[in-house]
Design a protein around this nucleic acid. Sequence first.
DNA 1: CATATTTGTTCGTTTGTCGAATAAAACAAT
DNA 2: ATTGTTTTATTCGACAAACGAACAAATATG
Lengths: 402, 402
Amino acid sequence: MSGSSLSPREVARRRLLDTLRREGPLARVEIGHHLGMSPASVSELTASLLDEGVLVTEEGSEALSGLIRGRPKVRLFFADSLGFVIGVWTGFNRIELRLVDSAGRNRASRHVERPLRNLEADALMDVLSETITAFARDSGAPDVKAVGLACQGYVDTKEGIVAWSPVLGTRDLPLAEGLGQRLGKPVLIENDASAMAFAIAQRDPALRVGRTACLMIGDGVGLGFLVQGELYRGARSGGSEFGHVRLRRSGPQCRCGGRGCIEAFLADYALHRDAQLIDHRPAPTILIPSEDAMGALVAQARAGDTALLHLFREAGEVLGDAASILIQTLEPDHIVICGPGTRAMDLLSPSFEAALEHQTIPALRSLTTIQVVESSMDLLTEGVVMQALRELDQDLARLRAA
Amino acid sequence: MSGSSLSPREVARRRLLDTLRREGPLARVEIGHHLGMSPASVSELTASLLDEGVLVTEEGSEALSGLIRGRPKVRLFFADSLGFVIGVWTGFNRIELRLVDSAGRNRASRHVERPLRNLEADALMDVLSETITAFARDSGAPDVKAVGLACQGYVDTKEGIVAWSPVLGTRDLPLAEGLGQRLGKPVLIENDASAMAFAIAQRDPALRVGRTACLMIGDGVGLGFLVQGELYRGARSGGSEFGHVRLRRSGPQCRCGGRGCIEAFLADYALHRDAQLIDHRPAPTILIPSEDAMGALVAQARAGDTALLHLFREAGEVLGDAASILIQTLEPDHIVICGPGTRAMDLLSPSFEAALEHQTIPALRSLTTIQVVESSMDLLTEGVVMQALRELDQDLARLRAA
DNA sequence: CATATTTGTTCGTTTGTCGAATAAAACAAT
DNA sequence: ATTGTTTTATTCGACAAACGAACAAATATG
């Protein structure tokens, strides 16, 4: 009845590898310090990991010594010759790729402009498979061990299924399996906001204690929620498409088919579309505007365009309402606002702050810190690559145990 | 850095006591089955627990044997002679009390009509202390080991602080310490919706797997959220006053000072107040109506009063919106609607269902089951008493370990 | 070169769990 | 009555995992 329980050894092994992935090369004593373990136990664990070739001792430690008295530390880290992992993000008309070696070090990256919307499921998987294969070939990476893919929508990471996505017509697409078969490698899929949240939390230790809610504004509005540094998993993906909470009953149309979703006020496409409407130009079909177009929009607003300023004010208000709901439901210790949408944070802030204060019960407000993290989509592939590496580590451990 | 880590022994001990509390008297083999442990280990653990007098072997097992072939089971359970625990719920003008023995068996209960609103913090604690002491005395319970108190508002169980409560004027009241000093016993405080959620989940095993959100409608609207049967703890109490999420910007006044809170549509006081307003009677100050008054209101609506029906329709709609937010944020496997407010579920249902379907993205809707649990406030004291007993069990274990 | 200092390993011990054998306590069959 | 049968519980030896203490290793300092 206790499910697939890991052996104590596997748990320890995993914790060790996790901290090593995060904290860079560490000496055995330092690992012990991080994990609250005795040096003896660390020695035992690392001995077998070195033996298996998962870890290697760091060269050139002599640079570090020279001033410290005792025996110099020998730092350990992942071997970088055990193959590669590719991280992918798929947007509406763009694919971002990143290649890392087994030590997690960046080896190559690429972005491809390619409209993905309205492709059939099979066609989409073909395109992805080809793009990934070409990238691996061109980067001279013959031995890709796994692929991590971050995409929009409700993603069930465990089952490898995309339940719904704004990009896809199909529902319940078994993407991990489909792409995995084409590539002949394990594929891990993840919601993009979750991947972003994970990456951001890897960089800031404060975000790994307590609960952290990451609101990502960009093509859509996503939520990645972390509890003690681990991604919260709901029945499906865990609040990851929070952007489709409908805050205004008679609000603008959203691409999900509903009305008044958070996303329908805040996402790039929504702001761009509403700006077009102001100019009495015909409303475009849903379209992801370029970064340039969004930059121009923001610049025009900053220059004092009152109609545009009103749009941003309303968007900020919705963001404040959204943050307030998060606070009063999840009671997070931190809220992080991230993604390309933060480019207009100066325009959103006044109404955001006002709405947040207005809508949140004061006793709770002080418990949550709110910060804006300027994060490019780069972080996204970084996040999903780290997750794929972690899975790989775990598989290694499990393989050994079997 | 790893906090206060329990020894493996303590963890096992606690898991054992938890299942025993929940699943009633069990034989050693059955315990092993529940926990996925070998009989040898169970024997080892129970031996010391029997030795310490925490557990006893059940008498009268001969009634159970007689038809089964092998050696008869000897069921173990908590000794009932190790003192008592009192569970308390404080409403606006009512205090509910329950006395259980160390085996968790009900020994006495009482409810006291007593307006608590607008009392000073010290006066409130005095009243509670006196009421509890009198109850213990009258019930012939000389040896009360601990008190569990469930109350409305933002409760920080760990710190024992009530951050804010509709009953209190004060903020950040250290209630556990204050009451504990007066009574000379440890006091555990908990949000009432959380206590209710805990009690309901103890009764239904299905609610202890995955995530369960319990919406309690009554004096206010509370939320108890469980992950794998354990209460989710946010930065404070964990979404417990979800009722103060503001869904309608220009909605009715709420007792928290805001406007358009979920509670301001659904709570007893809100429905009662709005019904008064329909009749052009002067709006009463915030007042908790009696169960009779609410019954009359519901009866009148069922009889076809269109204005009242409209009130309930709107309340149902808000409930649907609320459930939708929960689904799209927490992605729970189960939503349970409970509390006295379910008395009018037939009136709320049509608009509730409609709003829920309208506001929720279809890909997620099917993942969450929704059920209504008719639950009296009795369950509440049961929930908090169980939590207090659990704490006591843990303390026993810790005491031994020290 | 001896000493101090810090890192890492070895080794014996403790703790917790398990499997297998064994004992215990009933019923069933002859 | 006695002898199996069946299920429950305990005992005992084995093993895994982690720890503390002692010890070895590698460097800086005086």
